[in-house]
Each structure stands twice: as structure tokens, then as C-alpha cells.
């Protein structure tokens, strides 16, 4: 019956043809969806998915695409793609799996159109004019969702690495050590300061030894940030001792005219900790040099 309709060459409006495509895809839904799943399976794109997931997801994706074609609205597809990306990236699905899957669906839809309209090249061409932009748009929606999700994950990881890269360590009561390693930019300097201030509060620290041995270079901006860290700690009642200033950084600081008179500096970390101990009223006394290993040997004897 459809065939007859197609063979009639009366010109129809684009909307009617669009509706016809929609109906066609809906009618053939089971057949085309099965084809799609089979093809994806053959390409190994469904690895790691359960049978149930494949069923559910393929139905939803299939229907969502038809809604796009019918309404010209992509919001549903965007929301779904984002959700899929979120889960997919979490589960370690590859970009190839996702994009490959959508490209396969595009082929399945396309091929069915070719079969359907093979008698009428003119209508096929008109149908493709409607179908192709929608298919393109869907692919770009999916690809974008995935790229965004990846970027989000990368951002979160960067954040996590940044936080891990500057641990604030408590050495003893009221004494914190802040070893800074690597390049400092404004964002990291800010994060270091915030983290240090919070730790000063929770650990009730009075002295902080900030070791910058591992910082390769300092410009005026970073020097400013370091001074701010020292000043902010002071406002919370904690004294900062800066250690490990390399000859290069020392030169930079002096050249930049950073106010070093108010900074407590000690050559190296060890010296810094000694000064901090003194400041806090601790005295480190050396007793009989006796390692626990020797101790045990003695016992055995």
C-alpha cells in the first residue's frame, strides 16, 4: 500500500515527507533496531554491555533519534547523550564504541531509506535532504557530549592532582610543613594558600615551614602570592618560615624588590624545622645512638 503511495509522483510538502519517514522508521523499528544491534555486535562495539542494557539502550536511542527527526528538537537527545557519556566514560567505554555505534545507526537508517525509495530516485533524494542534516546533527550532539564529559573528567583529575601535589603535613603539635614542588601558577598558589589556611585552623598550628626547594622559578606574580600566603597565615596567628630559596629565586626576589625584611627565611628544610622547634619551645636532645635493630640484637645475645 505504501508502495503505491510512493509511486504517485504528486509533489508533497516537506512536512508530509518528514512524517512519512518518521512513520516508516517507527513501523520498521524492530527490524531496523535488530539489524543495528547485529552490526554493532559484529564490529565488537558492544563489548562490556549486558544483553538487557543493549536492549534498553538501543530502544531508547532509536526512539530518541526519531523524535529528533519528527520535531526538529534535539534537547531530548542532548540530555540523553550527556547521561550516556557520563556513564560511558565512567565505565571506560571508548569513543570508538559510542561514535561507532551512532554511525552504524546512521547507516542502518540510511540503507533502509535506499531500499524503501529505490523505485523513486527523486523522492529518495528529497528524503535524504530531510534525513541527512538530522543524522549529522545527532552525531555532533553525541560527539560533543562525549568530549565535554572527557573534559570534565580531566578537569576533576587535574584538580585532584593539584590537591595531592601540595600536602600540608603536621610534624608535631602546632607545626606544619608545606613542601611545594613544581611550577606554581596563580590558580595553584591560591589553592595552596586556601588549603594552608584551613589546615592552620583545624590543626591549630602556630608555625609553618614552607619549603620551596622544588620550585624551579618565581616571577613577580608568584612572589606576590608567596608573600600573600605568609601574610594571610600571620593574620591567623601562624608564623611562616620559608626555606629552600635557590640562588636563582633569591636573585629574582631581590631584583623584584619583594619585601623580604618581614619574611622569616632559613637556608634549608632541616634548619627551618630546627628554628620552628626553638620557636615552639621544643628542644631536640640526642640520646645514645642506638637503632632499634641493634637493640634487638643485644636482646638476642
Amino acid at each position: 500500500m505504501k508502495r503505491e503511495k510512493i509511486n504517485q509522483s504528486t509533489p508533497e510538502s516537506e512536512a508530509a515527507l518528514r512524517q512519512e519517514l518518521v512513520e516508516h522508521f517507527r513501523e520498521k523499528r524492530e527490524l531496523l533496531r535488530q539489524q543495528w544491534v547485529q552490526q554493532m555486535n559484529a564490529k565488537g562495539l558492544l563489548a562490556g554491555l549486558t544483553q538487557e542494557e543493549i536492549e534498553n539502550e538501543s530502544i531508547t536511542i532509536y526512539d530518541t533519534c526519531i523524535v529528533c527527526l519528527e520535531t526538529g528538537e534535539y534537547e531530548g537527545a542532548q540530555t540523553y547523550a550527556r547521561r550516556m557519556a557520563e556513564r560511558g566514560v565512567l565505565r571506560g567505554m571508548t569513543t570508538e564504541q559510542i561514535i561507532g555505534g551512532i554511525l552504524t545507526l546512521r547507516n542502518v537508517y540510511g540503507r533502509s531509506l535506499f531500499e524503501w525509495y529505490q523505485q523513486d530516485m527523486e523522492r529518495l533524494s528529497a528524503a535524504l535532504d530531510i534525513y541527512e542534516p538530522v543524522a549529522d546533527k545527532i552525531i555532533s550532539v553525541v560527539a560533543l557530549a562525549f568530549v565535554e564529559e572527557r573534559e570534565k573528567v580531566v578537569r576533576q583529575q587535574q584538580e585532584a592532582i593539584r590537591e595531592l601535589s601540595t600536602p600540608v603535613l603536621q610534624v608535631r603539635d602546632q607545626l606544619l610543613i608545606l613542601p611545594i614542588i613544581g611550577v606554581i601558577d596563580t590558580h595553584r598558589a591560591r589553592q595552596i594558600t586556601e588549603q594552608l589556611l584551613r589546615t592552620i585552623r583545624t590543626r591549630r598550628a602556630k608555625v609553618v615551614v614552607m619549603d620551596i626547594t622544588g620550585v624551579p622559578a618565581v616571577d613577580s606574580k608568584i612572589a606576590g602570592h608567596l608573600v600573600q600566603t605568609v601574610d594571610a597565615s600571620k593574620l591567623m596567628g601562624a608564623t611562616v618560615i620559608v626555606t629552600g630559596i635557590s640562588p636563582e629565586i633569591a636573585q629574582t626576589l631581590v631584583t623584584l624588590g619583594v619585601d623580604i625584611a618581614k619574611m622569616n627565611t632559613v637556608g634549608d628544610l632541616q634548619g627551618g624545622i630546627e628554628v620552628a622547634n626553638e620557636f615552639l619551645g621544643y628542644k631536640v636532645v640526642r640520646t645514645e645512638p642506638e637503632t632499634s635493630l641493634n637493640h634487638q640484637e643485644k636482646k638476642v645475645q
Binding site: L197, I200, D231, A232, L235, M236
Partner: peptide
């Protein structure tokens, strides 16, 4: 002086 306030002041 709270940590956030100290940060904002500097």
C-alpha cells in the same frame, strides 16, 4: 580571623 577572611584580606 577566619581562613576565608584572611585570604580575602591579603
Amino acid at each position: 580571623i577566619q581562613p576565608e577572611v584572611a585570604f580575602s584580606m591579603v
